[in-house]
Structures are given as structure tokens and as C-alpha cells.
Amino acid sequence: MSIWSESTQSRAKEILAKYPEKRSAVMPLLYLAMAEDGWLTEEGMTEVAEWVGITPAQVQSVASFYTMFKRERTGKYLVSLCTSISCMLLGSDDVLAAIEDESGVPHGETDEEGLISVEHAECIGACGGAVACQVNYELIEGLTAEKGRELVRWLKKARPEAVNTDEMQELFGGQRSFEWALPSDVGAAGPFPAFEPYGTATKDPQ
């Protein structure tokens, strides 16, 4: 008996249909489970285990290998600031300190309300736009300490239903790795990458 809604179940079936073997759907289904619960719960992992026919221990083993499957309560906005080499050279440690200070959330933690989580991330592939930051994996390039504070204040005040990279870049970004293509019309409503086939994307977030 699935704990998922009808629409989530039909999404899960579509995902399974894309792979020759069921187990390949583990990671997509984990994202689906996160979209359902806001983060990856034990119930979510158990449900995924049912769908692909492996044990919950095996699902946990896979999920815990990857940094993006958040197995602890995570805020509606996950702020991930890159502090790898290129961003470090451009001052990311100061930007992180500003974000921690403004949000009151040290890296690796979530505020009491469950609104904002802060983490320092390893390279997120935006080195030409250092300092790089993601909110729910939606990218902002060329972030400064001051813009980082503004970002936190905006998240707390505006509380967008979902965040979108193009909108945030416009508001808080600077130097980019390259000229971006046309804006994308979806956003992420939680700490998971917005990707329509996984049921994690929110349409027209603005």
C-alpha cells in the first residue's frame, strides 16, 4: 500500500518505465520522495524500497552516499555556498560568514522555523562566476557578502513558493561563467533540483 498520492504514484511509474532495470530508478524516486515530504524521510526511503524491490537498508546506503538526499529535516530554502578553490580565491569564506550571520544559521544546520538551511558546498560548477551560490540548487553567480545578506533577507521576507535561478541572478548576481541562455520558467519549492520528470519542478514560480 503506497503512502504516496495518486499523482506521485503515476509519476513513479513513468520514472520506472525509463529504465531497463528497476533499481536504476532509485535516485529519481528519492527526489520524488523528497518533493513529497520536503526532505528524505525514513518513510520515503521505505516507500522507494518497495517501488524498486530492494531493502530499506539498501536504499539508505545509496541515499546516504550522495550529498543531495537530505535525510534530516531541511529548510524550505537550502542555501549552498561554494567554498572550493576558485570561489575561495574570490572570497567565498567571507560570503559564507555573511550568510551565516544574516540568517543566524551556521553551516550544516537549519533554522527553528524550518525556513532556511545553510551549507558550504564543494564545487558547483560555476567557477567563472565565483563566488557561486545555490538556493535549492538554483544558481546565483558572482555573489558578494552584501548581496548574500540581501538574498537571505529576501528569502525571509518574500518567501517565494519556489526559487528560480534567473530571477535570483537578476536580483543578487554579478559576474557569470558565461552568457546564460533564455530564462527557465520553473523553480524549486524545496531542497531538491527542479526537474520536471522527477516531479520536483514548480511551474511559473513567480
Binding site: 525514513e42 531493502t55 530499506p56 537498508a57 539498501q58 536504499v59 539508505q60 546516504s64 550522495y66
Partner: peptide, 21 residues
């Protein structure tokens, strides 16, 4: 009966079961 598995990654890797299982 794969009920004990590696959990987490790298230097944090541990062997464990699923909670309550």
C-alpha cells in the same frame, strides 16, 4: 538478506542497519 549496508561516504562511511529494521 541485505539488511546491513554501508552508510554515508568517505571518511564517514559506516556499517549500519535501517532504523527499526
Amino acid at each position: 538478506d541485505p539488511l546491513i549496508e554501508f552508510k554515508d561516504r568517505g571518511n564517514n562511511t559506516q556499517v549500519n542497519t535501517f532504523p527499526d529494521l
